[in-house]
Design a protein around this nucleic acid. Structure first.
Lengths: 214, 214, 214, 214
DNA sequence: TATGAATGAGGCTTCATTCAT
DNA sequence: GATGAATGAAGCCTCATTCAT
């Protein structure tokens, strides 16, 4: 999230002032939604936090929903960059764990993300869709590349799509359970990471011999 | 979902009439939330569908939220019974697949469940929590029993907790992706089930030898 | 206009109370629009005058426009009855003058009518249309009957339609000019009536002989 | 309507540029009000059509109302010239029909006029008043001159004033009824003109003999 | 003079909840 | 217990006007 700096605003030209105001609203929305959720993110509340008049809001956004729908995709891209920067060149399984861990690190970096991500599906469906497409297509390519390198079990493209859902679902549900807390966002416990690692590397169940080949 | 019978209401004593009215409201809420979501489930709409006056609502529920919070746990129990009845005595991995499939069968049986489940977290948090506790504790016991029978990889109790989140997240996300459709609820494709089976039996990634021992 | 009596409201049953409230709103709207015009007739203002809460408004009318569109047709019918009661059995020309005079008498009786009539076309088009259809069809029948009795010059049905417009336009414009005044509504001067009588009985211009026959 | 020429604006001095901008706003207002009506003629819309900034508006007009009030009188004068040019030297009754027809011709020439004329009374009362005074005094003089030439029935000055209202009301109502249409403005049907002619030349009703002398 | 972002009052409507019958 | 009209807070949005650049 681009944090609007509160530095001196001494000399800004018109275009800059304009962008600065929009950014203030955007940042305020991020804060408000992150803290109180979409349902409580009224235009009045957002503009109050942003320190502008309610009418100003509509100089920068068509309506409330338009802003809300921009929230997740924007932060979602930040997340992608963040995770990418934290992914090394180890074997594929390890990279997946790195991505998984980095996801939780990002949540701590941008605590608003958690709530925005989880609620967007219902309060900002268009934004959620956009974010989801961003993420899942990237994820799918990663898996396909791993498969090409012989690093995965045998999965079809369709199955990979389902797997992407599972992996995103894992992050979503785990983050709700382990990152929320009274005051702020906490680090994810190690056993969550180890559980995830075991699941993606060995599966959950031992398989009787005769089933091995499906 | 307990369907209120439309049988003759001729002879009901006071207690029965009372329960019958409450049930009507409850069923109406299920229908309305299932079809339009929590956000559109106004008291006016629910009571209209139930065929009672708005004021009647408050004779049976403290407020709107109280009813909404009861929705998911109640249907959730129906789901547990449904799944349990569909789980055989095969090996643990197979039973998990049966449970997974049964989950999607239940969605088709009770189409309202999908929306209620997915939205409850944000619109009926208390109800969601209750449901979640119901499910996850049951699930945890299943995994622990499987472990005792030597049917799982090596997981600690804490890790199992995380795994439960993952498995529920998988169901949640996959159902959103594959069960929703224009008109009603559709069956989940086979490749989703096979992907899930592969994941829980073999994991996702092949592991280089030296990593085997974490 | 049915004036809501301000008599004791001691004992009214539910249905009566309901109708009474709706009537209060209706009367308030009549007053407000009559005095300040449609543009200034906000729901807030109307409900304040009616002495009810703003929300109450929407228990009785779908929305603001629905009420506004009912205003003119309702008063318009009162006007028709009023005029009819004042029209005697003299010859057709005299009856027309009676109707014309009665129109202005009605305006004094129901001063709100003037503004409601004149503004409705632009602020309550649906209501205006309804009123206009009511009036013009009645008027047309009157003219046709007079023609059948040999009491009119030679006009076709289509021409009569145009004449109806002219006669209504005459009332509209004359009432704006002669009935409005600072404080309330004034009687129309005699010379207006005599001018109207001369016009409808002899026309305006003397016609050179050779034109007589078109 | 003075159409702002789209000629090269390359060399204009300060005064000319000023007038040119004001004219652009004026023309835009005419278009907007003519097409959408006064109520939809927001300053934002007008300036957008004019291609100037909103603030510019207030360099040329005190406020929104001031502009709106200038619209009708200006076009009204164009109308007067138009009609005068189309009025011949035949007998008075014929001239009146020519004026009547020319009025409808003008509406087709300047389609915006219709809406501006009809709505002005309520949205631009000051402008309406001014226009009305312009027209009615001119009309009154015409009638007086006709009377002096012995071309009219017996009317007093006061009665003539009322007659002017009737004749203008006829034009107003007839134009609303017969000139509006889905796409643009249509010619007035012949039977409207013939009805008008009959009315002003013979009146509407046959008069029993004994009434002749009122 | 031109610009256009900022302002804030005010409009319409929804809806959970109350309460007299 | 059932009813349903009444309440009023709160939400979203529009728009004429101002003002710093």
């Amino acid at each position: 999230m681009t944090q609007a700096t509160s530095a001196k605003v001494t000399k800004l030209n018109r275009v800059e002032r304009n962008a600065w105001t929009k950014q203030k609203i955007f940042d305020a929305a991020t804060k408000v939604v992150g803290k109180y959720g979409y349902a409580e993110a009224s235009v009045a509340r957002i503009t109050e936090v942003a320190g502008v008049a309610q009418g100003t809001f509509y100089n920068h956004f068509e309506n409330r929903q338009e802003l809300l729908d921009q929230l997740l995709p924007k932060i979602g891209l930040d997340m992608v960059h963040f995770i990418r920067a934290r992914t090394g060149t180890a074997d594929e399984a390890r990279q997946e764990i790195e991505r998984f861990s980095a996801f939780f690190d990002f949540i701590r970096e941008v605590p608003e993300f958690l709530r925005i991500l989880n609620e967007a599906e219902f309060f900002a469906p268009a934004g959620y869709q956009k974010h989801f497409d961003n993420i899942s297509s990237a994820y799918l390519r990663i898996l396909q590349r791993a498969r090409a390198a012989g690093a995965t079990s045998t999965f079809s493209d369709e199955e990979f799509e389902a797997i992407v859902q599972v992996l995103m679902g894992a992050r979503g549900y785990l983050s709700r359970r382990y990152s929320y807390s009274e005051h702020g966002v906490t680090a994810v416990p190690d056993h969550v990471i180890s559980a995830y690692r075991k699941l993606v590397t060995h599966g959950l169940f031992n398989v009787p011999d005769e089933e091995t080949k499906s």
